[in-house]
């Protein structure tokens, strides 16, 4: 509700600040910090995320930090601080978003006393680096989402549009799975479940995704899903594909956080299915919200 009300207000502000470039910059940075906090706080206040900061495999952490850059660039291209037409504009926005994410993480972790000067540099850097990934995604989205604009599908060829839909689903899946993957509950739930529970969860995830993607989609407004599309066509091209993306993103998140080390295939698949549930919801919601 609040978002709906802030939308016209956001557009008014946009018009006002257009007169003063300095105010525009400050408002943009403020929105970035707002987004970083909204998206990052759940993880900044999760103790497993603090612990992961010092014990997560350094190679996997570095890979996550590096992969975050192309992810932010593509996201900026879709949902940037402003309409970007050139790649170096995207790069600048990404650098600013990453910096906002890092600063927001440092400030919040320091205020919580989770990061102190008494700690070794390796621990501080690890904790901040891990948190900066979700916070930077939030900073990038914050400026567009809090500013009242909406992500427009890229005006490219059909394949590019389809790829961008899948990319947005992957971002949604990554975001929600990063939120919950570090907690112990993810693996605990998978240990409590039997194979039958897992199959039921797969069916529930796919059903909910399809409800989001197809049934709740405003028929006709989405150019990739014209109203006369048969259900199985949307099901195969978006729902099943989105769920497969959610499963793979879940596997990546579990691997990054060391949840797959020395674990047999069946328990890994079970925790993948558990984590893919929120990831699937995130993927489906990303198409509506972003």
């Amino acid at each position: 509700m609040q978002k709906a009300r802030s939308r016209p207000a956001g557009q008014e502000i946009e018009q006002q600040v257009r007169q003063s470039p300095r105010r525009k910059l400050l408002v943009g940075l403020g929105r970035g910090f707002g987004g970083a906090l909204i998206f990052g706080l759940p993880m900044l206040m999760t103790m497993e995320m603090w612990w992961l900061g010092f014990y997560v495999d350094r190679f996997r952490l570095a890979l996550l930090l590096i992969l975050n850059v192309p992810l932010l660039i593509l996201l900026s291209h879709h949902a940037g601080f402003e309409e970007t037409t050139r790649w170096h504009d995207d790069l600048r926005d990404v650098a600013v978003a990453y910096a906002i994410g890092i600063v927001a993480s440092v400030v919040v972790l320091a205020v919580f006393g989770v990061v102190t000067f008494a700690m070794p540099a390796d621990e501080i850097v690890g904790k901040v680096a891990l948190q900066s990934v979700p916070a930077s995604i939030g900073a990038l989205l914050g400026r567009s989402q809090l500013g009242g604009s909406k992500v427009e599908p890229s005006e490219g060829t059909e394949q590019v549009n389809y790829a961008s839909e899948l990319f947005l689903m992957a971002v949604g899946a990554l975001f929600l799975s990063l939120n919950v993957a570090p907690t112990e509950e993810m693996v605990l739930i998978s240990y409590k479940m039997t194979g039958w529970h897992a199959l039921a969860l797969i069916a529930l995830s796919i059903f909910l995704m399809h409800a989001f993607v197809y049934a709740l989609e405003f028929a006709g407004s989405d150019p990739s899903l014209p109203p006369e599309t048969p259900w199985w066509s949307a099901f195969l091209r978006f729902t099943v594909t989105g769920y497969a993306i959610a499963l793979l993103i879940s596997l990546y998140a579990l691997w990054t956080f060391g949840r797959t080390d020395d674990v047999a295939l069946m328990p890994v698949l079970m925790s993948m299915v558990v984590l893919a549930f929120p990831a699937a919801i995130g993927a489906a919601a990303a198409r509506l919200i972003l």
């Binding site: 059909e158 394949q159 389809y162 899948l166 039997t194 194979g195 039958w196 897992a198 199959l199 797969i202 796919i206 990739s224 066509s233 195969l236 091209r237 099943v240 594909t241 769920y243 497969a244 993306i245 499963l247 793979l248 295939l265 069946m266 698949l269 079970m270 993948m272 299915v273």
Partner: peptide
């Protein structure tokens, strides 16, 4: 829809079915 979308959809269906099959076998 483009043929690529069907290819990606088909591959995704294979991934999901393989996982369902494996879990079903174990169950």
């Amino acid at each position: 829809p483009h043929a690529l979308e069907w290819v990606v959809g088909g591959l995704s269906a294979l991934v999901v079915l393989a996982i369902v099959g494996f879990i079903l076998y174990h169950a």
